[in-house]
Design a binder for these strands. Sequence first.
DNA 1: CTAGGTGCAAACATTTTGCATGGTT
DNA 2: AACCATGCAAAATGTTTGCACCTAG
Lengths: 139, 139
Amino acid sequence: MDKNSSSLDLKKAGLKVTLPRVKILELLENSKDRHMSAEDVYRALLDADADVGLATVYRVLTQFEAAGLVTRHDFDGGKKIYELDTGESHDHIVCVKTGEVAEFRDEIIEKRLLEIAEELGYELTDHKLVLYGVAKAKS
Amino acid sequence: MDKNSSSLDLKKAGLKVTLPRVKILELLENSKDRHMSAEDVYRALLDADADVGLATVYRVLTQFEAAGLVTRHDFDGGKKIYELDTGESHDHIVCVKTGEVAEFRDEIIEKRLLEIAEELGYELTDHKLVLYGVAKAKS
DNA sequence: CTAGGTGCAAACATTTTGCATGGTT
DNA sequence: AACCATGCAAAATGTTTGCACCTAG
């Protein structure tokens, strides 16, 4: 019953349960790297002997985003990065040396952003915050 | 002596003073919209009867970025957006309806970001913060 | 069975690069 | 004069789309 959870999520999202969609969703759920580009997903599927076309990967990821299953980021500029949407909004910190991505959520920031938008005369709908830094050696 | 300031900036940045570079820098300094894509710059130059190739626009903007004269953003994902670097780091708020971009700087945020990076074991080198919202009717 | 999904390849959009020519110091 | 910058067109990315075939409900 491995695919059951994925199937349920798909149905809940109003998407027909097809093989490519299940495979992609499972991949996103199980992959160690939560942040993947369409190309990453495509290659991972190939490695897993799943025969899914690149165009389908793009289409499915787009549908997943529309359905709220995944979130899209444009960290650097080259590619679009997708990650499973856990419901918990969070921000990212990227190591400029290794490219590794970590996540965090900070209430002080969240609260202040609301205030700032208010002060500027906007109703805040979303935000995107990425920190860039060098990971320091751990003591 | 309109071009003098631009020329000086270019020299200070260690760039040879050429016509395309001067024109592009002046454009960025004088344009009402501080945020422009390479295509935007290219078309504005065409409109001004400046005969600069698109490839040169890309090259010059890249050099300007390397020289610290401009900053690059990837607001949505499609295109890369450039803006003059005023030295004052600031963040952006984008109206999801009109696409208009406003700028702000908030010390509470700046301070907190440093703390967060520290807590996560990073030395902060940069950050990117974009708020998305709907501009409310002004009373 | 029927609507919608998929794969492939071609089309697109944006950015980069090779090369011969031209401009700046 | 020497060197680097430019323009053009071709190539390289990354993403989207048209169309014939296939599959889930």
